[in-house]
Design a protein around this nucleic acid. Structure first.
Lengths: 346, 346
DNA sequence: TTTATTTACGCAAACGATGCCATCCTGCAC
DNA sequence: GTGCAGGATGGCATCGTTTGCGTAAATAAA
């Protein structure tokens, strides 16, 4: 089954003029007489003519579409980011093509190449957990494809970057737990290769140090797949709660980790926050509905998406190669609820 | 900044052969001598040649991409569906372009036309709340664009459809509430124009009737935007709980409604399930974490996505116009938790 | 009237890839 | 030596659109 669209030729034939005339009339060129213009416009309307963007892309070497690569969209943080991206892209006449890496390096490379080969005008990407080598992005960047990183960035490519102040977010959450009376704060973080993990871990450590709490290596754990693999989480919780000296609070660094840890704690019969307090990064809209209501570090995801697409469109629109790159850092918000109230119920 | 890719011409020039030769060599045509073939292949590899899908789309009038229109991706149900769609599309070499209608008719029409003009080979769509007129889809369908409906369907277009047994889902949930002892079950449903609303409401009513409970019009409410506008929800809860005879249970028909209602009930100081029981459609992964753990009707979203893309690819691949259309109905699952245990705490 | 200038349009090339048709060459049979 | 088959390749049109250039007719200036 094929789908035949009305082309400029159909209009030309119907009116007995050339395709150039039709094209120019539609683009409102000064070379075309008002009468011809209105004739063409009327005919285009009548036949329901829609310009073929594929043909345009071929000719202009631009597709008016941008690619977005995230680890997965079934994640509040990323879907909110995408909403931010789309809202601006849409207004500027750009289409957004969304691809999911599912934390897989291979899948990320394939997605990126697919998008590039489909002539996206630019790329927004938050790296997959598995990704340590970004030569696939470097190659495209070198060949002129505008790329903007957000959330999970890499220092190995010099381009615009949009992040939140991950250090500050983790610092504040940790300090809050300390202020609540926690002494033995464990952290369950994502893969140590991710930029966000490094920053968040640094914030956690700094808060401990400032408050004279000694860092305990047994309290620091990583979940390589960040909660996508549930057994990872169970294993970590198991390690933590078979220690002689158990943690009295946990900081988690991502949405899936936060809810995954809470699930596991509950299944083990541990009470939050009485047995162990919990605070973590999350962008869920129902933190207040959870038992106990969750203390979360919330990222301005929509703003991040908007900032990222804004920077990308700047790159795309710039006439000459951009040398100066910006690093926009947004501020996360600590929303305090019961899950972190260490002594609240005691 | 533009992005120059290697073309077939570059290879032809480098080797001193014609573009046709290169093209045929790359497609492994029998007409080309083995020596030339290996020469071309080696050169293509060396220059990192990637075929330009835009040019191919123009020539072949197919883009190897399919469009997906949902109301919003920041919704577990839809993002799970999309994951199902993508997993199959990806394997079959199709790219997925996701568009969000945000329940707006205007936005849906724009999205659909954008996708069509970008030569998607087919369309998967779940209608927006506002959509009552589907002539924009009919027109495309008539012109040969394969379309498959899922979730929110319309009878006005004869094509493949994938849904869950909404009647059964609502019936089972309602019957469960009745079995738990509820006598005055209110229902808070989406816009009455949506197909899913009609079916779910019918299931609710049937369960009441079978169990000899008289239907009370004051207990039946609609939220036109299905929870996207929070004031809608508050208004409905207000109406229900200023009644002389208040409901002892509530059935909700969508994710946002379920969590939105729970939020509102809590803010009003109503205890679930002691003051009022709650059961609703939802695909959240953290129903067990919510206070109280939520009884939900869960749809096999991933399966729905897979079924939909499967049917769509069948349409796309079929040589002759398809006349017989399928309606696949999957079975929802009732997950029983505390929120519906009417007498549990009494 | 002749020569410039403007107006309004058509022709054809281009974008990247494909595929039909034509062409050239080699080898073989008559 | 002529004819022909067939292998290997090049030429060209095509998809839909834009755009530089050319040009006819109409108008203005000489």
């Amino acid at each position: 089954m094929k789908f035949e669209a009305v082309t400029i030729k159909d209009i030309a034939k119907a009116l007995g003029v050339s395709t150039s005339t039709v094209s120019r009339a539609l683009r409102d060129s000064y070379e075309i007489s008002p009468e011809t213009k209105s004739l063409v416009l009327e005919c285009a309307e009548r036949l329901n003519y829609k310009p073929n963007p594929i043909a345009l892309s071929l000719k202009e070497k631009r597709s008016r579409s941008i690619g977005v690569v995230v680890s997965e969209i079934a994640n509040n943080f990323f879907s909110q980011i995408i909403n931010g991206i789309e809202s601006i892209a849409y207004d500027r006449g750009y289409n957004t093509i969304i691809a999911q890496s599912f934390e897989s390096y291979e899948r990320e490379v394939l997605n990126v190449q697919f998008l590039a080969s489909r002539s996206v005008d630019g790329l927004l990407i938050s790296l997959a957990t598995e990704t340590t080598d970004i030569s696939h992005l470097k190659a495209l960047s070198d060949r002129g494809l505008p790329i903007v990183f957000f959330d999970r960035i890499s220092d190995e490519l010099n381009t615009h970057k949009v992040i939140v102040d991950n250090f500050r977010g983790a610092y504040n959450a940790t300090e809050h737990l300390i202020n609540m009376g926690a002494k033995r704060i464990a952290v369950i973080a994502n893969s140590e290769f991710l930029s966000i993990t490094k920053d968040r871990l640094a914030g956690y450590k700094e808060a401990l140090q400032v408050h004279d709490i000694k860092e305990n290596p047994k309290f620091i754990h990583h979940c390589y797949y960040g909660g996508m693999v549930f057994s990872e989480i169970e294993e970590v919780v198991n390690k933590l709660f078979t220690l002689k000296v158990k943690p009295d609070a946990i900081l988690t660094t991502s949405d899936k980790l936060t809810t995954g840890i809470l699930k596991t704690l509950k299944r083990r019969g541990l009470k939050v926050p009485d047995d162990v307090a919990l605070a973590g990064f999350s962008n869920t809209d129902i933190a207040e509905l959870i038992d106990p209501p969750l203390t979360i570090v919330r990222q301005p995801a929509r703003d991040m998406g908007e900032a990222a697409i804004d920077l990308l469109l700047q790159l795309i629109d710039s006439k000459r190669p951009v040398k100066e790159f910006e690093r926009r850092m947004l501020t996360p918000e600590l929303q305090i609820r019961e899950s972190s109230m260490v002594h609240h119920h005691k």
